[in-house]
Design a protein around this nucleic acid. Sequence first.
DNA 1: TGAGCCCATAAACTGGGCTTATGAGCATGA
DNA 2: TCATGCTCATAAGCCCAGTTTATGGGCTCA
Lengths: 307, 307
Amino acid sequence: MNGPEGAAPLAHRVPDLGAMELLLAVARHGSLGRAARDLGITQPAASSRVRSMERLLGVALVDRSPRGSRLTAEGVLVTDWARRVVEAAEAFDAGAQALRGRRDSRLRVAASMTIAEYLLPGWLIALRAERPGTAVSLSAGNSAVVAERLLADEADLGFVEGLGVPVGLDSAVIGHDRLVVVTAPSHPWARRSRPLLPAELAATALISRERGSGTRQVLDAALAAHGGLAEPLIELASTTAVKAAVVSGAGPTVLSELALGEELAARRLVQIPVEGVRLRRDLRAVWRQGPLPAGPARDLLSLTRPT
Amino acid sequence: MNGPEGAAPLAHRVPDLGAMELLLAVARHGSLGRAARDLGITQPAASSRVRSMERLLGVALVDRSPRGSRLTAEGVLVTDWARRVVEAAEAFDAGAQALRGRRDSRLRVAASMTIAEYLLPGWLIALRAERPGTAVSLSAGNSAVVAERLLADEADLGFVEGLGVPVGLDSAVIGHDRLVVVTAPSHPWARRSRPLLPAELAATALISRERGSGTRQVLDAALAAHGGLAEPLIELASTTAVKAAVVSGAGPTVLSELALGEELAARRLVQIPVEGVRLRRDLRAVWRQGPLPAGPARDLLSLTRPT
DNA sequence: TGAGCCCATAAACTGGGCTTATGAGCATGA
DNA sequence: TCATGCTCATAAGCCCAGTTTATGGGCTCA
């Protein structure tokens, strides 16, 4: 899953988040002391922390001079990698804050798991930048749960992916989500020179989410005209488990491209082109039937509009 | 840049990497005790750490029972967010290890900054999974530096993005990189209904990297037929600085899509379609003229091949 | 030449996270 | 019914990483 790591836990081989934040601050300010002030610690603390980071990594990160500190060439690279960790942590933070949010939050959001996992944290960061002080609460569930919460006035705005709009709700398409066929790089399909035909896909036993998942519904519908979906090879409960099985070579699957960023980039999985099927679903914002939402819900909605 | 945060540093609002790793292990194993063993700590340590994570986040993450522990609904979501942080940290680790690598490493890689920053860590993780024990050393620089290191036999394999292949080297295209026009969401271009014309782009003053960057070369060449690139609005030294300026609304820029993942997803930046120009550049692996590399270099090369 | 930046070092404090030791709850099977 | 074996929680004590305060040295500029 996370790969059989090299003995020592990751946390012992990598600087902690505070150190990475500090490194970014040093890059921004060009000075250890100012970076320290920015983070609310003293200059010696920053100095020692950067030093221990350099010791841990075995690389000089910062060129110190009496006129300030600049990153070394290696430091620039390390800082860029650190920035990605910190950004992921910011998304975590934004999500976690919304999860903690209570019923009296100014904006109560209900979202499908996929959207809550991959898209919502980014939107919340953007919302915080534009409208700081908007308290957001988040609950996640499938389309039915989202609809229920909206209709019961337990949520102001919802997000769902899937085929239809639940009754009693109005909606706006805010984006699209392609489903893609993926296999391990060692799978025969990875070496095909021609796109997969829908009938071939339909006839193949896939590693699959359990019946009822949104992904599976869309796939079923798209392949109905091509003989219907074959019985799954295995059914697994979570997207993560599906990915792990595919990576280990157990077989092909179909997943949202949102769930595949990392795996495709690192070529742990490869995407198999398919011809003649629209494996695409709408991502929708939904709200109680009536006028477009106002206030904080409107703010968030306008952030998520494609253009 | 990182946004003016809400007072307390991120590191105090977010569990540390060790805690996130632990949470992933609990999700994998379904038991605090087994997760603890997996990470080489004792069960009480794991128990207390999960508890303090729940206290910090204000959310119950784990359902404890005498038969094991399962994630709560909120725990699943938090774990997914944590997984992304841990993955970014793994990429950091892979990159940092390569940076520390000495001259006697079995595989010496030289790469352009863009590739070293965004793609190489993922490849290194994949390489470690397939060929554990391959010691990799990394040095980063522009195309000229990469070529120089290869020709001086200080590197076994190089990666460059750009227009031509330096003399004395053989190469293989391993992927592509689209350059995209982006602005802040508030920019007038973000509300255009029709694609931008090349001549319009050429006539507009952009926020730009300094002369000599690969991105700028490609852009120059692509727009030569449309009147040539206008004088930049500002020239900045790093991609990060360019992005920050664009986000703050200073003007449009053209950047590699590799550098834009996070910003586009969170709609801090929006992509402006352009018609009739191929803003695309090859990503190439390069090596000293002669036969395809063998050994570890071959292993890495085959990982990076598109298919 | 002194003021004002920069950074490094030293010593002392603190607390979070660890371990060891123990106990309680629930299943399973003799 | 009672022992075994898994689960997790609690308590007490240790240790070290990261902190602060206090100090000093280097460079630049007025």
